[in-house]
Design a protein around this nucleic acid. Structure first.
Ligand SMILES: [Zn+2]
Ligand SMILES: [Zn+2]
Ligand SMILES: [Zn+2]
Ligand SMILES: [Zn+2]
Lengths: 161, 161
DNA sequence: AACCAATGCGTTATGAAATAACATAACCCG
DNA sequence: CGGGTTATGTTATTTCATAACGCATTGGTT
């Protein structure tokens, strides 16, 4: 990645087999509860995100879309991503122009990421936004969403160098 | 902007005349101290940012580059922006693909923004990253930079609606 | 002054990311 | 089944950003 430091590049291995199926099933049941539809394109994009070892670019998803190697058309993937984000199944990482599946079990949450500039992993964590919110609201703002992306080196890359 | 809510669109009026000249002069003297060069293209882009009423897109800067209406070539502006960011004279707002001049007097700082989804203003503020840093470093991360962008309604738009 | 390395600029071209617009299809509910 | 709503397929375009290369300027060295 950014720095010259070469690891075997999967601090966050993607899901396969049963784990993958289970994650998709969880999303499906959550959709049913809220009367949302996990349609084939949406499901396919979610699967690709879950299988991946790290953040996926939109055009990586487009290229990886079909089982047969057939790419999707851009709007197909962008629309699916919009849905997945809205439902909380995926997050966009602004500073990477990339997407990850949500890794937090809980329901609604405000996502934040620790992004390793060496190996490219993006670990989701549950931030404490209270101080920022307090300051912003004291200044008269009505905060709706917060994007927090911290960049640096993950434990593995920090040690190994 | 995003919401349908129409204000006179300049909660953050750009600089003109003496104020503009003074801001540019401050940047210039800071460059001299660090043996960096505020060359004509860099200066021009900085001026355009300072004059603007809000975040500027790269291609807005490209279009507004010449006094005579002549646009710049993209690399000219992107290189200048890279320089201005490196020196702390400008910040990129990831969630807008846009740029603002730095509004904080102090020296080095980690920028954070309150972005109004109605009028489009982006107010820079000095965040308190301590809790996030503590958590990240406890988890073994070495944090280098942090991007924090809060979106919502500014005081003016919240009230008026 | 002549030289040289380092940095910055101008220019052309291309690549990467995201959306507009519109027609068609599936779904849901009564 | 009818009609509104939601989702998809498809084509094209727009928006954002960088690669690559040669020339110019700078600042130090001999
Ligand atoms: Zn999440
Ligand atoms: Zn790493
Ligand atoms: Zn600043
Ligand atoms: Zn506002």
């Amino acid at each position: 990645m950014g720095v010259d430091c070469h690891h075997t590049e999967s601090a966050q291995p993607g899901l396969e087999g049963a784990a993958l199926a289970s994650a998709v099933a969880a999303a499906e049941s959550k959709c049913e509860r809220t009367r949302e539809r996990l349609t084939p394109p949406r499901r396919r994009v979610l699967e690709r995100l879950l299988e991946a070892d790290g953040p996926m670019k939109a055009y990586d998803l487009i290229a990886a879309y079909g089982q047969d190697g057939e790419p999707a058309k851009p709007p197909t993937v962008y629309r699916a991503l919009e849905f997945l984000e809205r439902l909380g199944f995926a997050h966009r990482i602004e500073s990477l122009n990339a997407y990850v599946p949500c890794r937090m079990e809980g329901t609604s949450h405000r996502a934040a990421f620790l992004i390793c500039e060496c190996c490219g992993t993006a670990e989701e964590f549950e931030p404490d936004f209270a101080p920022q919110f307090a300051a912003a609201e004291a200044a008269g703002y009505a905060v709706r969403t917060v994007t927090l992306e911290a960049r640096g080196l993950c434990p593995a890359c920090k040690g190994g160098a």
